[in-house]
């Protein structure tokens, strides 16, 4: 593994598989144990530096670090020196001066983790940067697919929704294709980036047409405010054309699974009966997120101080 985890596009097959295998080992080691804690990162400090509101990702990273016995500091931009105008660089240098070994960063600006990695000596983990990437989400998605379907190579994945603005989509496109999956993105043309032709994906505007072939349908969160910028005419029309409802679920073959990174807009991109069906992996994804993030922190921090 490299020193940082900045983007899924950076991971080769060996690295990506190592993370997934490590997560599986951690799961196995902790299975059935009453005290779900490993001593691996005792004495190391992980800082969760969150410039955007996040519940599940922050808690997931916090839990992952604590289960590895690391000390965890949660730093939220609100009510901190950042709200007094402190720059990202100064904040990072301050945290490092206090002895942080890894910074887990969530930021509204694409590339912010890459900047951080230039300024600090410790490891940087991208927990979501703007509309760029969210690599641990893709890793936990891959882990979940492998767990459910037993493989990733040749798995047909359909990614549906706001690909243009989705860091989850970008990370999944690169990671899943590295792992051998065949990815199709489905969205209204307004929500597919110009330049998608250079991605290792097929593009479709017709959800019904691609569902029968899918092993995995991954629904992306669609933000209602996109409506105001004319990306689509109305939430209702979006839902009719690109939402996964009970009728569309019937188009899937028996073993196909439905995923969502959360938080969901029930009734918008996904219907309640789909989200709560046996095909849905949404709750497993959350649980797997902790294991995968433990694997990432373990591999980056290597267990012992250098």
């Amino acid at each position: 593994m490299k020193r940082h985890l900045l983007e899924a596009a950076d991971l080769d097959l060996a690295d990506a598989t190592l993370v997934l295998d490590t997560a599986a080992q951690i799961d196995a080691a902790l299975a059935g144990r009453e005290v779900k804690k490993l001593p691996t990162l005792r004495g190391r400090t992980v800082v969760n530096l969150f410039y955007e509101d996040s519940t599940r990702t922050r808690i997931s990273f916090e839990l992952a670090a604590k289960r590895l016995s690391a000390d965890v500091i949660n730093f939220s931009a609100k009510g901190s020196s950042v709200s007094k105008g402190e720059s990202l660089k100064d904040t990072a240098l301050t945290l490092e001066a206090m002895g942080s070994d890894a910074i887990v960063v969530r930021h509204g600006a694409s590339g912010a983790p890459h900047r951080l990695a230039q300024w600090v000596r410790g490891s940087v983990v991208n927990a979501g940067d703007g509309t760029h990437e969210h690599p641990t989400q893709a890793l936990l998605d891959a882990y979940t697919i492998r767990q459910r379907l037993g493989r990733l190579d040749g798995v047909r994945v359909v990614l549906v929704g706001d690909v243009l603005h989705s860091r989850v989509a970008r990370s999944n496109v690169w990671l899943l294709s590295t792992l051998g999956a065949e990815v199709t993105v489905v969205a209204p043309p307004t929500l597919v980036p110009v330049g998608v032709g250079s991605w290792p994906v097929r593009v479709s505007y017709d959800l019904d047409a691609v569902l029968p072939e899918a092993d995995v349908v991954m629904m992306l969160r669609v933000q209602a405010e996109r409506m105001n910028a004319s990306f689509f005419p109305s939430a209702r029309e979006y839902s009719r054309r690109y939402g996964l409802d009970a009728r569309r679920m019937e188009l899937l073959h028996d073993d196909a699974i439905v995923m969502h990174p959360g938080p969901m807009n029930r009734g918008m991109e996904i219907a309640a009966e789909v989200a709560d069906s046996v095909r849905s992996t949404i709750v497993e994804q959350v649980g797997n997120g902790v294991s995968v993030r433990m694997a990432v922190l373990y591999l980056l921090l290597g267990g012992a101080p250098e």
Partner: peptide, 9 residues
């Protein structure tokens, strides 16, 4: 273009 699509800018 291609690069903005990938970089998320």
């Amino acid at each position: 273009g291609d690069r903005s699509a990938r970089l998320g800018l």
